[in-house]
């Protein structure tokens, strides 16, 4: 039987842990709210931009615009991985890292060594530990990513793709589907592949519009914006996914701490009861000895 004093000490420690995890759960809940608001606020722009690009896009442009260029073979590939700067978010970072490793492995099986660009301390720490070369690192992205963050991350990659220095750029981040579903996913960032099967109402042929100055020049301005916005969307969805997973993880931790507390309290009571029983038995025994 455990010593009552030791059990008491453990109860105290588990209770403290539960207070901390509950606070973290509450913090993550309020951050999640703000993060999902940002995801919602950014979607009209993304949708309108996609509509306009799709209505201007013609397959013939693929040869004229560097950002639409489709190399025959993907030999020089860059992978942009987004993780969180902080842990304690369940399997959030681990899932992203696993996804990234899967992507890197499948390229290496084809004899391609992709460059690895990482935003977020957790991903950087993991790949550094594994001794993998990291081409660029960014740890300055906070809970509310901005357009400038997106531009800073993607501008060098976009530039190199335009110059023909890269054949493809992939983006690995978490999709935010709901607070309970935030799977990691890999998307092709470059070359841009406009969705040809979009809803038919969006697919108004370019020749029905007055285009000023010209379809080509409008696309020339919008395509870089399109790429930047894809990264921006990924950043804010990833930030929301991080908070969602942290909230779930901390809720589980709080619930588990509660279970452990219940068990320990029983153990403590039993130990205390045993001690009292023993003391009474000793007194009774002592009294009997005197008679």
């Amino acid at each position: 039987m455990a010593n009552a004093r030791d059990v008491k000490r453990r109860i105290k420690s588990v209770d403290n842990t539960r207070q901390i995890t509950r606070t973290m759960e509450l913090v993550a809940t309020s951050k999640l709210k703000r993060a999902t608001d940002r995801v919602g606020a950014a979607s009209p722009y993304a949708q309108a931009l996609r509509e306009i690009v799709e209505s201007l896009y013609a397959p013939a442009f693929a040869e004229r615009f560097p950002l639409l260029r489709r190399p025959e073979r993907e030999e020089r590939v860059a992978v942009l991985l987004m993780t969180a700067n902080r842990g304690l978010a369940g399997a959030f970072n681990a899932n992203l890292i696993k996804e990234a490793r899967g992507v890197l492995d499948s390229f290496e099986a084809k004899g391609v060594r992709p460059e690895l660009h990482i935003a977020g301390k957790k991903g950087i720490a993991y790949f550094r530990f594994r001794g993998q070369a990291i081409s660029s690192e960014d740890i300055s992205i906070g809970d509310a990513p901005t357009i400038d963050d997106a531009e800073r991350l993607v501008a060098p990659l976009r530039q190199r793709f335009v110059e023909g220095d890269l054949d493809a750029v992939y983006l690995i981040a978490s999709d935010y589907r709901s607070a309970l579903s935030t799977p990691p996913s890999t998307k092709k960032l470059l070359p841009i592949e406009p969705d040809q099967d979009g809803p038919s109402e969006n697919r108004q042929a370019a020749d029905t519009f007055i285009l000023s100055p010209s379809a080509g020049l409008i696309l020339d301005r919008l395509l870089p914006t399109y790429v930047r916005n894809a990264v921006f969307t990924a950043l804010i969805e990833n930030a929301a996914a991080e908070q969602a997973q942290r909230r779930t993880a901390m809720k589980n931790a709080t619930d588990n701490a509660g279970d452990v507390l219940e068990h320990l309290t029983r153990t403590y009571n039993r130990a205390r009861q045993a001690q009292i029983t023993q003391e009474i038995a000793e007194i009774v025994g002592g009294a009997a000895g005197l008679e």
Binding site: L56, Q204, I210, L211
Partner: peptide
């Protein structure tokens, strides 16, 4: 400047 009223022709402009 470009002005748009109801009934304007379809247009995309920078």
């Amino acid at each position: 400047e470009v002005g748009v009223l109801a009934g304007h022709a379809p247009m995309i402009t920078l």
